[in-house]
Design a protein around this nucleic acid. Structure first.
Lengths: 238, 238
DNA sequence: GTCTATACAGTGATAGAC
DNA sequence: GTCTATCACTGTATAGAC
């Protein structure tokens, strides 16, 4: 667990199977691998990475305990596989939305559209199934972990798209120093992750009036807030 | 672990000893209780709540393993005790700074001063010792946990001061709907927690130029960003 | 009251039989 | 490939020494 080299599975076949039958995968997850991934995603998001045991996962997926070690090497390996499965589509959708916005605006998109392209996929694409934003919550949890493994996983998954967005924001705010853009990007990450985590804190504070799980509403509140923050003049007036 | 009733210790004496000798506590933490708390704070912050075992804590504190269960009931009980020790001073300092700002401004303090009074104690008062913001990181971790226990701990520690600050912000922005204030308060919490977590992500993205561990700089960037967000008009123009 | 030794049911991981 | 059996380790509980 200490050093952060990514786990190598014993079954090293190149997964990402070319989807030989999409329909079958929908009805009842065929392979043991997929059932494990699905069960782990639900349970991890609900009880946290260390709140749920491999035995519970194997039971929910209806596979043998050792089978999960066989397919994923370790509990951490299972986490990595989950990210490999879910993170890439999010990063791709971000870039797609950004490209779209840039084309619409001839290379100079509105700041709001850039921020929306960054945040929206993260909030909406957390496991549509079961209605629960399972992956998003898991990801938010990982984002606050200091463990080297977590950093590595997030880094390989999102570094490229993050850099691209920092550049796009800097381009939309040419007067803002680069360092200021980076700080504000950091604050945006915080607001986004905390919304994804949906810890229930703000519901408790407001008697349920404010619900981060309502993605549409969250975005409508979040984007103007962030955009105004990004546009503000850097130094504190007082 | 499931239900969130706070842990009752076997040694139920009212702690918060009236500091009979401040100097002695500085040199070499006298009681086993304090040594355990100190060791746990450091280790929890460094490796995460479930990344470190009770045996490691007992070794670092130079006490017997069972002694920690005696004083704190359980691992979760240890966490609660840590919060009881560190959270209260932070909440108090927040209210003190807010009172100060209100007095200076005859009841209508600047928004920036309100936000500063809220965020500053959280960033600065995370265990001055060892130079490491140990408690802050731990707190940020807890904030993204969905576990009932975490919510309970944070709730009893910070509900009162949070409500007070939501009111103060709403008072400073009389045109802003209450719900909007609450959403933005939520985003502020996210930015603050992510800064406290100091996950290293933004350092990695920026080659170390941006360091959330630099509290002074973090505040100078954060307050104007948040203030602008709070002041912005609610609905997205487009 | 404080501390200790020891035991127990649970965890993740693994070797090896089928 | 899959499963059984087992390992070292975790948090917790308890009986009893000072």
């Amino acid at each position: 667990m200490g050093n952060a080299k990514l786990v190598r599975t014993r079954a090293q076949r190149d997964d990402t199977k070319p989807a030989r039958d999409r329909k079958a995968a929908r009805a009842e997850p065929a392979s043991a691998r997929e059932r494990i991934l699905h069960a782990a995603e639900q349970l991890f998001a609900e009880h946290g990475m260390s709140g749920v045991g491999l035995r519970a996962i194997s039971a929910a997926a209806e596979v043998n305990l050792a089978s999960i070690a066989y397919h994923f090497g370790s509990k951490d390996g299972l986490l990595e596989a989950l990210f490999a499965l879910r993170a890439a589509p999010i990063a791709e959708e971000r870039l797609r939305l950004l490209d779209e916005a840039e084309q619409r605006a001839d290379g100079n998109p509105e700041l709001e559209d850039i921020l929306d392209a960054f945040v929206r996929p993260a909030l909406t694409m957390g496991s549509q199934r079961n209605g629960g934003p399972a992956f998003g919550r898991l990801r938010a949890r990982l984002a606050t972990e200091p463990e080297a493994l977590s950093r590595k996983i997030l880094s390989v998954a999102f570094d490229a798209s993050s850099h691209r967005f920092i550049d796009a924001i800097a381009n939309a705010l040419p007067k803002l120093p680069r360092a200021e853009v980076e700080w504000r990007f950091h604050f945006m990450l915080g607001a986004m992750y905390y919304t994804m985590a949906n810890s229930g804190r703000i519901q408790a504070l407001t008697g349920g009036r404010c619900d981060p799980g309502d993605v549409k509403r969250a975005l409508r509140h979040m984007i103007p807030f962030l955009a105004a923050g990004f546009r503000s003049s850097p130094q504190r007036p007082a």
